[in-house]
């Protein structure tokens, strides 16, 4: 793959006896936004750390920007940007100084860093807070500063580990909007997330990881078409009136694809949610609440792993 920014074959990471990443293959092309989707502990962050050249691989081949991270780590890191899962801003410095010093780590001249910082403060909508302490900033502001910091070297590849975990909805949308803007500018991005909506919003293509392996790959639309039905009927019952998932599937046989039995609700996978709802009522079941919605990546994940993403 000539244009591949990241290429992995049989990439493996072991910590003692724990195998966090168990031989995955990846190809990320230039300009693409690529996602790792999976629950906590799936191996997403370990894979990201290997791509970021801060974690030596245990086995397999890995090329980032055409170079070997184990040998050319500093050369690769000079050309990429990293947004870690938890903000690791320098709390002893101001907002602006965080950008300055970080730029200096990349060997950029002082004047260039100063000019870049002005631009990035604007990008992160932090111009007004430029000379404030980092500590009192809101979670969303800190996140935007961490993202801005990762852009100080005009990276060819941006790695984002859980970019919006822990942010309120408004702050999340602002981050997504900024990332979309970067995508339009042609910055290749690799994103890990355990939020389906985030993956759907951001990613051109994604892999679903579970237990250190890739269980599916494709665009969000492809994955939904391949692994789920068009619609989903969500049902909630009083504990004493709740039918078993299997029993409900039997009643609705022929009309629905399958029924998932979750602790707080039943999910009925079907092409026609309204028809399924009518059939449930006709069978004498009285749910407290019923909701018909379109399938999401959440459902894909449930189908592939038998588990929910966020628990």
């Amino acid at each position: 793959m000539a244009d591949g920014l990241v290429q992995a074959r049989g990439l493996t990471k072991r910590f003692g006896r724990v195998e966090a990443v168990r031989g995955i293959d990846l190809d990320v092309g230039r300009g693409e936004v690529f996602g790792f989707l999976g629950p906590n502990g799936a191996g997403k962050s370990s894979a990201m750390r290997m791509i970021a050249c801060v974690s030596p691989r245990t086995a397999g081949d890995l090329q980032v920007l055409g170079l070997d991270p184990d040998r050319d780590g500093p050369a690769v890191r000079a050309r990429i940007g990293v947004v870690p899962q938890l903000d690791n801003l320098d709390l002893e410095l101001t907002v602006r100084q965080n950008l300055h010093l970080y730029g200096r780590y990349f060997g950029l001249p002082r004047a260039a860093v100063r000019a870049k910082a002005v631009e990035l403060l604007e990008f992160a909508r932090l111009t007004e807070r430029a000379d404030d302490e980092v500590e009192p900033l809101s979670g969303g502001m800190k996140r935007r500063l961490t993202i801005a910091r990762a852009l100080v070297n005009d990276p060819e590849l941006l790695l984002l580990d859980e970019p919006t975990t822990g942010l309120d909805p408004q702050a999340r949308h602002l981050v997504w909007e900024r990332l979309y803007r970067l995508k339009r500018e042609g910055v290749t991005q690799i994103v890990t997330t355990h939020y389906m909506d985030e993956a759907e919003q951001l990613c051109d293509r994604l892999v679903v990881m579970d237990g250190g392996v890739i269980v599916a790959e494709g665009t969000p639309r492809e994955l939904i078409e391949r692994y789920s039905t068009r619609e989903v009927l969500e049902l909630r019952f009083e504990p004493e009136h709740r039918p078993a998932g299997d029993a409900l599937a039997e009643v609705l046989a022929g009309r629905v694809d399958r029924v998932e039995d979750l602790p707080d609700r039943l999910l009925v996978y079907t092409a026609d949610g309204d028809a399924a709802q009518a059939a449930v009522a006709a069978a004498g079941h009285r749910p407290l609440a019923a909701l018909v919605r379109r399938s999401s990546l959440e459902d894909v994940f449930l189908r592939l792993t038998g588990r929910t993403l966020v628990d």
Binding site: R77, N88, Y102, F106, G107, R149, N153
Partner: peptide, 14 residues
């Protein structure tokens, strides 16, 4: 705690 070195290792610094 500050994870400052993680931030530095993401740059060319070793």
């Amino acid at each position: 705690y500050a994870k400052l070195y993680d931030a530095m290792l993401a740059t060319p610094l070793g």
